[in-house]
């Protein structure tokens, strides 16, 4: 048997063991090229974290918890000094949800700067998206990847499905970059795209946690069921989301409306 074939077998075996016992079998080079999310449910099942220079699909239905989980990962990445860019193609994000991502966390070492979190808004939400919009988003992703300024680039395509050509171009851009590319898709039915290295599929779990209020539930926080696919192997786990902090804790209330009756 040729030596190369032996090496391939050993590598495959190591990868298999790494999936069984995460963090024990990866080489030092592989470790530095990976990004851990800081979420034990994902890192424990996803060997070597998310790969840099590769495409990771983050797929789920329109409402499935994928962006909430992604935000938790982005907050951890920024806290550890990584720079993250988010391409919000449809301008669907609300600023209030993302205001504290990228702030210096308690765990930051003294002198360590938190990473940047930039959102690239491709078009105004009021404007109708032109037919060439996917080309624009592709250009932005390409620009961010080639700039070398960011460690993670998130491409939120909404319900759009990227073509094979798009994947090919992004893969080529990633080759000259240190970044990891995450493609956020609102489509669970489509198979993983060409060149997709890892795919995380999200859906709500059966149980939904309710935070009780005075007269009933104050907030619904369902758990998220997550399936991780990589190298043909798949694992399913459940992510419990953080509790909601209302902005009513803030100290400057709006001027009360004394003219109108209470709703």
């Amino acid at each position: 048997m040729p030596q190369a074939e032996h090496l391939n077998q050993i590598t495959a075996l190591k990868q298999h063991f790494e999936q069984l016992f995460p963090g024990k079998w990866a080489t030092a080079g592989e470790k530095t090229r990976a990004l851990l999310t800081g979420l034990p449910e994902i890192d424990g099942n996803l060997s070597r974290g998310l790969a840099r220079q590769r495409i990771t699909e983050w797929a789920g239905r329109t409402s499935s918890g994928k962006t909430t989980v992604l935000r938790a990962a982005i907050a951890n990445w920024c806290a550890s000094g990584l720079d993250v860019a988010y391409i919000d193609a449809g301008c669907r994000l609300l600023a209030a949800d993302w205001a504290f991502v990228g702030q210096k966390a308690d765990a930051c070492a003294p002198g360590q700067e938190a990473g940047r979190f930039w959102v690239i808004r491709a078009a105004c939400p009021e404007q109708a998206r032109p037919a060439s919009s996917s080309r624009d988003e592709l250009y932005i992703a390409d620009l961010l990847l080639r700039s070398g300024s960011f460690d993670v680039v998130v491409l939120d395509l909404g319900a759009g499905s990227p073509s094979s050509r798009m994947y090919a171009r992004l893969t080529r851009s990633l080759a000259g970059s240190k970044a990891a590319l995450i493609i956020l898709k609102d489509d669970l039915s489509a198979p993983p795209g060409w060149g997709c290295h890892t795919r995380l599929s999200f859906r709500w779990a059966e149980d939904a946690c309710c935070e009780p209020g005075i007269n009933g539930p104050a907030m619904i926080t369902p758990a998220v069921r997550l399936s991780i696919w990589r190298d043909g192997a798949s694992k399913t786990t459940e992510v419990v989301l953080g509790s909601h902090v209302s902005n009513r804790l803030f100290t400057h209330p709006q001027v009360p409306d004394r003219r109108a009756p209470k709703a």
Binding site: L93, A96, F117, W118, V119, R121, I140, F250, Q254
Partner: peptide, 22 residues
């Protein structure tokens, strides 16, 4: 290249309404 695009960052604002809270 894309005059309509903008690189922004989120800032919290002390307001009640969801659209104005940031």
């Amino acid at each position: 290249r894309l005059p309509g695009a903008a690189a922004v960052r989120a800032v919290a604002s002390d307001q009640y309404f969801p659209d104005n809270a940031g």
